[in-house]
Each structure stands twice: as structure tokens, then as C-alpha cells.
Amino acid sequence: MARIAWIVLVLLAAGTSLLERAGILAFSGLGTVQAVLVALAVLAMLADAAANFSEVRRFGRTIRMVIQKDLQIEWRTRARLNGLVFFALATLLMFSFALGPDTAILRRNAGGYLWLGILFASVLSLGESFRIETENQCLDGLRLAPVDARAIFLGKALGNTFMLWILAIVITPVTIALYDVSVKEGVLKLFGVLLLGCFGISAPGTIYGAIASNARARDVLLPLLLFPVLIPSLLASVKATGLILEGDPMGQLGSWLGLLGAFNLLYWGLGFALFPRVIEDD
């Protein structure tokens, strides 16, 4: 009961803010209505969590253990992260070779190159994240474990986000040095945008990675499926990163972050709801 209540309230709040942004819905007091909706949703969520305390704790533990498992596998060889970093660096170098030594162009488009480097590396990272699951039928083991498949999704996707974020943080100084840019709006803001953008890549990336890992020609399939759905969030990430690097005199950052956040919510919600059907076996 409380669960249905908070889901409906969250959807209402999100829907009204979306309609407001689109200019369809506008009346005085809308902000108050939304605040009340969010407050009620938080209350209902707390009530739901209190009523199902053991279930919630179990869900959280599953997420934590999936992340821990992935990071442990990664830490034992550190092969994936090393490979990713050098791949992304090579990509960044390639951009400066391909575009010639015109520093003005490189500086202006630095945000775009940074995100393309992350995007190309993310395909490798997401593919690898599910390749380790197909080895020795690990995915079957996960599926047989008496845990919620949605917790597995959150664990895998959060692990992928973390990995991509580390990669982004490592290659950011190189981008700054290579393309001779200065971070006008502060490094913390930049890392925040990078994190949001990595969230945006890894939710659809986890679903499509799970699909592609079981299909024929998975190396072709993953980028083909993933890149088109990433275009909106990638566009927002590139614009936001560019504004942080170049300075934001017009205050446009908020609207791009809003778009990025909206697509994040959408894709994480869809992934959360649909992932159990992706890995089911019948």
C-alpha cells in the first residue's frame, strides 16, 4: 500500500515538473504542490522501508555484494581499468592528431572529445562487465541465488558507473593538458557532471550489455544498440562539460543538467523495471 503510494507520488512529482519544463502545465502554487508531493513521497517511502525492513536490508546487501564482487574481480588483475585508461588516452591523442594543431578548435571542443573518449571506452567496459558473468556460467549462479534481480541490476549498473567515473577522473587532467583548457567553473563541479554523465551511460549500458553478451556478434551489437539511446544524455553531458570548462556567463548549466537528470531518471527507472526480464531464463 505504502509502496504503491510512493511510486504514484514520485511519478506525479516527476510528471508535473516535466510538463512544467515543457511549458504545458503552469499555475501559481505549482511549486508548493510539488513540494507537498515530494514530502508525502518521502514519508510513504519511509513507511514502506519500515514495514519491510528486513527486505530492504536484504536488497541493499545484494547491491553492495554485487558491487563488491565486481570491484574485487577488477582489483585482482586491474586489467580492465588499465586497458580502459590507455584506450581512452589513445582516443584523446587521436582526436588531436586527426584535427591538426589548431589549439583554438581543440580547446573549444575539449568537452566533446573527453566524452567521446569515455563513450568509446565505456563500450569496452560494459562488454567486459558482462563477459566476466558469462565465464563459467556466473550469470546462471546469480540468477539462481534467491535475491531480487533488480538489486543485481542496481549493483551492476552502480559498479559500471563507478568504473567509468574513475576512468573519467583519470583522463580529465590529460584532457586539460592535451587541449590546453582551464576549468573555469571549478573541478568539483566538473567531477559532478562527469558522475552524472557516467550514470547516464551505465543504466542503458547495463541492460544492453546483458543482452549483447548472450547474443551473436556481441562486439558489433553493443555499440549499435547503445549509442543511439545515449545521444540525448551525451549531448547534455557534452554541453554541461563545455560550459564548465569555458565558463557559464549565461547560466545555461542548469537546463542541461536538468535534461541529463531527466534522462538518468528515465533510463534508471526503465532498467530497474525491465532488467529482471532481460536475464530471466525459460
Partner: peptide, 8 residues
């Protein structure tokens, strides 16, 4: 899988 993709 294509149903999942169709929704996204």
C-alpha cells in the same frame, strides 16, 4: 529482449 528494447 526486443520487447525490452522496444520499450526503451
Amino acid at each position: 529482449w526486443s520487447a525490452v528494447m522496444g520499450i526503451i
